[in-house]
């Protein structure tokens, strides 16, 4: 699910980037914010950070002792993407193993669909293994699949989400 989130962060402007001209200061605050935004990549609550849409408010700067850097509280709105349990999403298959397949869905790299969660599909071994059901519907590399999300997990050290998903239920499976 895409989210629109308003966040309040502190942006630190190094003393040497401070400028007497107001516009330049604003610019360095924005560049620094975008920089922090990209570096942060994702959080557990908000999901993956995609883009800042508006800068809503820049608060009064506070000079930090010793360094002379200035800290500005900044209020901004951004777009994020986070997988949720119970959600229906579409992903593209990128790896097929005997016991299940891995999919990609937007910024989420590792989505696992176990063969136990698509019990009507059978593993067909070969050079390019696939999963296929009686109706000849195929789960193969590069195919888009609609699935429901059973669980999600956020890995703090990698700043990545992982999800386990299922095809059990009607209206789920490969989409043309």
């Amino acid at each position: 699910m895409f989210l629109k989130v308003q966040l309040s962060w502190n942006v630190i402007i190094p003393a040497e980037s401070l400028d007497t001209k107001g516009l330049m200061l604003q610019k360095s605050i924005i560049t620094r914010l975008l920089d922090d935004f990209s570096t942060k990549k994702a959080t557990k609550e908000n999901g993956y950070f995609l883009a800042v849409t508006t800068l809503d408010n820049i608060g009064e700067g506070r000079v930090r002792q010793h360094t002379g850097d200035v800290l500005f509280p900044v209020l901004f709105t951004c777009i994020t993407f986070r997988p949720y349990r119970g959600e229906i999403l579409e992903g593209v298959v990128h790896k097929i193993l005997k016991h299940g397949v891995f999919l990609r869905c937007g910024p989420v790299e590792n989505i696992y669909l176990s063969n136990q969660k698509m019990s009507d599909y059978k593993y067909v071994p070969g050079e390019n293994p696939i999963f296929m059901n009686d109706k000849l519907s195929k789960v193969e590399k590069g195919v888009a699949v609609r699935f429901s999300v059973i669980g999600t997990k956020y890995i703090e050290t990698e700043k990545e989400f992982q999800a386990v998903v299922s095809l059990e239920g009607d209206f789920l499976g490969p989409v043309s």
Binding site: T39, L50, A51
Partner: peptide, 21 residues
């Protein structure tokens, strides 16, 4: 054009997903 402006890595993939959906 401005090398100081960084775009999050997830941006493209997010856009791609949004467009496909």
């Amino acid at each position: 054009e401005d090398p100081t402006i960084k775009i999050p890595t997830a941006f493209d993939r997010g856009l791609q997903y949004a467009k496909s959906g």
